[in-house]
Amino acid sequence: MSHHIVEFKDVFFRYPDGTQALGGINFRITHGESVGVVGANGAGKSTLLQHMNGYLMPASGTVTIGDLRLTKRTRQEIRRKVGIVFQNPDDQLFMPTVFDDVAFGPLNLGMDEASVRERVNKALCMVNSLALRDKPPHHLSCGQKSAVAIAAVMAMEPDILAMDEPAANLDPKSRRSLITLLKTFKHSKIIASHDLDLILDVCGRCIVIGDGVVVADGPSSEILSDRALLEENSLELPLSLQRR
């Protein structure tokens, strides 16, 4: 099952204003792995995620998804394989009703009406939100919005799921149900977050990023209990590990 891998090799990226965001990123994620990406504000987490489906193209180095190398030509193809869930669900839910929004991806894949409906229902069931089908996004609560945003991505049946701060703005209960939900997914998952407890709960592996390079990479339980490493990167021990 080598076709669900994600590989970054010496990836460099510089924004037009001159900020160096990625300075030689290297890692490899294999099929079915759950990986947390942590680091200080501005360390390059979001930039990294934006490389996963070709919204940004590396200045040098290569990004490989499955057996495809990311280029302008393979970009469309790669976007079908990698589903990205954004930090702010308002930016992601851009259609006037939940149904339209979840159907947006499948319709772009060129599916016929009946299978689109089936996909939408399936995706909404997966996140327990079928009842919200005909509502407009602006009538939803934050938790509902982020559930629907996940459904919208899942409706495309991606091989790899990438998420940027999935639990920001969620109340504790919604956060808990999100974690339960994430644990049920069999996909490869890459989650960028400051919520270290969530990462500890969901991800077996953790990558620490600082100033655009990989600072540490290993099992979450080891990395997230390394107080010195975490504090160096403006992070702190997960609350669940702080009890002595």
Partner: peptide, 23 residues
């Protein structure tokens, strides 16, 4: 900036220039 993020979200879900619509 928001418009830019929305556009990114659209691209991520296979947007290729036409807004699809179901009857």
């Amino acid at each position: 900036d928001r418009a830019e993020r929305i556009y990114y979200a659209m691209l991520s879900r296979g947007f290729a220039g036409d807004m699809p619509a179901l009857k």
